[in-house]
């Protein structure tokens, strides 16, 4: 069984790390002028934990530092070397065009978080509502104010995304998770434009008092490889 990390146009493995998940040695499988980076694996030993996920990522990042790389989703295992070769042959055209399109590029992640949400309404001892109706009205007003503030912040976050997309070759918005998250996005940026993008984020962060911007990366271009539409979800 072979665990698959990435597909690359590099005919050599990076110097480090020399091993992948569970300390297994990395090796290359070549077909159709493409290289798959794999290591032996016992499927039931694969666990979705931080250690193994970072081990996968470390291999992909080492490849990214040297040249073109298409990261493969965590947990992909093929039975035989022949299966890997067949996969490279079958997808060669798309893989090659992706490697060409993504050459010299990295992905940057961005989250915008709403700051200073008003505290939930608390019962005020000195001004207790005189009726259930009054209490409900107060609650309603507080909720309305919160929603209005959130809508305004969401609009600002969307404007911010549009502004940052100008600094990127491509961009993807993810579904934000958590009630404070206004924006979760990924941007494809040329390696030599990383600093320019980060400076743009810092400038926007400084002018947006209502939200906090968090930029992560550089990541391998996970969000920008082709074939996501083939996923049956």
């Amino acid at each position: 069984m072979l665990y698959l990390y990435a597909i690359t146009d590099q005919p050599q493995l990076p110097a480090a790390p020399s091993s992948g998940l569970l300390g297994q040695p990395l090796r290359l499988i070549e077909a159709a002028g493409l290289w798959a980076v794999v290591s032996p694996i016992v499927p039931k030993e694969v666990q979705t934990n931080a250690e193994q996920v970072w081990a996968h990522e470390a291999v992909v990042e080492a490849l990214l530092a040297r040249g073109g790389v298409l990261p493969v989703r965590f947990g992909t295992i093929l039975e035989h070397e022949a299966n890997v070769e067949a996969l490279l042959h079958k997808r060669a055209a798309v893989l090659r065009s992706d490697l060409e399109r993504l050459a010299g590029c990295v992905e940057l992640g961005l989250r915008a978080l709403l700051l200073d949400l008003p505290a939930p309404p608390e019962p005020e001892p000195q001004a207790a509502p005189t009726s259930g109706r009054e209490y409900m009205l107060r609650r309603f007003a507080a909720e309305q104010a919160l929603q209005a503030r959130r809508r305004q912040a969401e609009a600002a976050a969307n404007q911010l995304h549009t502004a940052l997309a100008d600094y990127a070759l491509a961009s993807v918005q993810r579904q934000p998770t958590g009630e404070r998250m206004l924006l979760s996005a990924a941007y494809l940026v040329r390696r030599d434009a990383i600093n320019r993008f980060r400076e743009a984020v810092a400038a926007l962060d400084a002018t947006n008092a209502q939200m906090q911007l968090l930029c992560t990366g550089p990541w391998p271009p996970y969000h920008f490889v082709s074939g996501d539409e083939e996923r049956h979800s």
Partner: peptide
């Protein structure tokens, strides 16, 4: 950063589905 990594590594990247692929079922 770990959350951002998980959003990528478990959800994105080249996705290979087929008879020859044994994706880890619990991912």
């Amino acid at each position: 950063t770990l959350l951002d990594l998980l959003d990528r590594i478990l959800d994105k990247g080249v996705i290979i589905i087929g008879d020859v692929t044994i994706s880890v079922a619990n991912v």
